[in-house]
Nucleic acid binder design. Structure first.
Length: 446
DNA sequence: GCATGATCATGC
DNA sequence: GCATGATCATGC
């Protein structure tokens, strides 16, 4: 890496290095990532965000030439806006434009070696949440991934490409329409709709067009990325670490920090799920993605906040139960037992003298087998209540060493039906504070 | 200070 | 609109 490159913060010749550097944008805004002030705000126009990423974050001059953005690394930088749809689902706001179509050149290309494929083969895709009330520097960056056309989509994309190209070859570029194709389209791209350009096999001028993935296609691409799981990134010397060692390595630099410090560090707002988000960010993952290792080992991260006394501030809840299911299913086949057989990554915060909570430790916890009969007793006791039409009666923490039953609802009118008797407020099983405390000190040995 | 009922806030 | 994680509020 040359002196100049190190000042950039990444090596522009290495796709790996560019990617690592780009990943730091996840969950942040450009303003946070660059420290730019109000003066730097670009004019709000199409492409303002993309240009700002190139200019202010990667510090490359915006280019519209058909060369690669990162020529040395063979990487094409693309930014794409997302928005919330009517049902609150994330959608691609627009098509993703890849490159202008040269009618002159495209007729001599074959798909595999086309200019389009050259551009689409290796994309660094940065997705951001468009918000009309914000300036581009303040858009939230949702994901940063290296993307190329999935194998299974290639036949359709190739078909789309050939549909368009055959029209040009037939001398009918002026007849091309977005409706001709499914995933890939030739979309119009000009300063205004009156612009026309020449085509090779006809005197009729045609609208200038660009290759673009349709918005619907990008929505699906996006959805897959969001749902897909990610492995926790490991450096070379961490490759052989077992999971807990790796987790300890990741978390330990943050031990002692307050929640506020962590939230600021990772640009996370003070919402109630901030701890879960902090956990993902400490692991170096986007907050949308599942953690592949956690999925594989059935590990669920949970935050535990300990008072100065060492007693948990709150009991630990499980999902609200269905009264019918509870009444019918045995403990052995219950979803409650399923929860208890899971492993939990307990992220432990502890209150200090100044009443602020600081990240203290992490541990993997699973209910010891010897405690399962006690949990079973709680389950069956509640089951009996429900079978007698008394879902309203809970199993109290004074009645069971490990767990109890308590409401878990929006409010007292947020009820669920029970097999006998009137609907009752939603409830769930909780781990007792005292039990949690004992377990945590047993595992952490403190 | 604790147990328990009640509710909030957010993402999907 | 609901599930979920998280916390508040009240009475003892």
């Amino acid at each position: 890496m040359s002196v100049d490159d190190s000042r950039l913060g990444y090596n522009p010749k290495s796709a790996e290095s560019i990617f690592e550097y780009a990943r730091r944008l996840r969950g942040r805004t450009l303003r946070e990532a660059t420290g730019l002030g109000e003066l730097a705000d670009p004019h709000i126009r199409r492409g303002a965000f993309g240009s700002a990423v190139e200019e202010f974050y990667f510090r490359i001059k915006p280019n519209s030439s058909p060369r690669m953005d990162f020529d040395g690394a063979g990487l094409e930088l693309k930014t794409t806006p997302l928005k919330f749809g009517p049902k609150g689902k994330l959608l691609a706001k627009e098509r993703l434009v890849i490159t202008m179509i040269s009618y002159e050149d495209v007729v001599n290309e074959d798909f595999e070696h086309s200019h389009f494929m050259e551009k689409a083969r290796n994309i660094l895709l940065i997705s951001y949440l468009y918000d009309s009330s914000k300036k581009p520097l303040d858009y939230e960056i949702k994901s940063v991934v290296r993307w190329s056309i999935p194998e299974e989509d290639l036949p359709q994309i190739k078909h789309d490409w050939e549909t368009v190209v055959s029209k040009v070859r037939a001398g009918h570029a002026e007849d091309i329409s977005g409706g001709d194709t499914l995933y890939l389209e030739a979309c119009t791209k000009a300063r205004d709709s009156s612009v026309r350009t020449a085509q090779p096999f006809s005197e009729v001028p045609a609208k200038p067009r660009a290759w673009a993935f349709k918005a619907s296609y990008m929505t699906e691409v996006q959805r897959k990325m969001v749902d897909s799981s990610e492995r926790i990134p490991r450096s070379e010397n961490e490759k052989e670490f077992d999971l807990l060692t790796l987790l300890a390595e990741r978390f330990s630099p943050y031990f002692g920090m307050t929640e506020q410090e962590l939230a600021r560090r990772f640009a996370i707002s003070g919402s109630k799920d901030r701890c879960a988000r902090i956990t993902k960010r400490i692991l170096g993952l986007g907050d949308k993605s599942k953690v592949e290792e956690f999925e594989k080992a059935d590990i669920v991260p949970k935050t535990v906040r300990l008072r100065k006394s060492g007693r948990p501030k709150e009991a630990m809840s499980f999902p609200a139960f269905d009264y019918f299911e509870l009444s019918e299913k045995s403990f052995e086949s219950s979803s409650f037992l399923e929860c208890l057989l899971r492993k939990y990554l307990l992220v432990v915060y502890r209150e200090d003298e100044k009443d602020t909570y600081r990240l203290k430790d992490i541990c993997l916890w699973q209910m010891p087998e010897k405690d399962l009969p006690e949990a079973r007793r709680c389950y069956e006791q509640m089951q009996e209540n429900v079978r007698h039409g008394r879902g309203d009666v809970s199993v109290h923490s004074t009645e069971n060493r490990c767990c109890h039953v308590r409401p878990h609802a929006r409010n007292s009118s947020d009820v669920r039906p029970q097999p006998f008797g009137p609907p009752v407020v939603k409830k769930c099983f909780w781990l007792n504070k005292g039990y949690l405390q004992n377990e945590i000190s047993r595992v952490l040995g403190s």
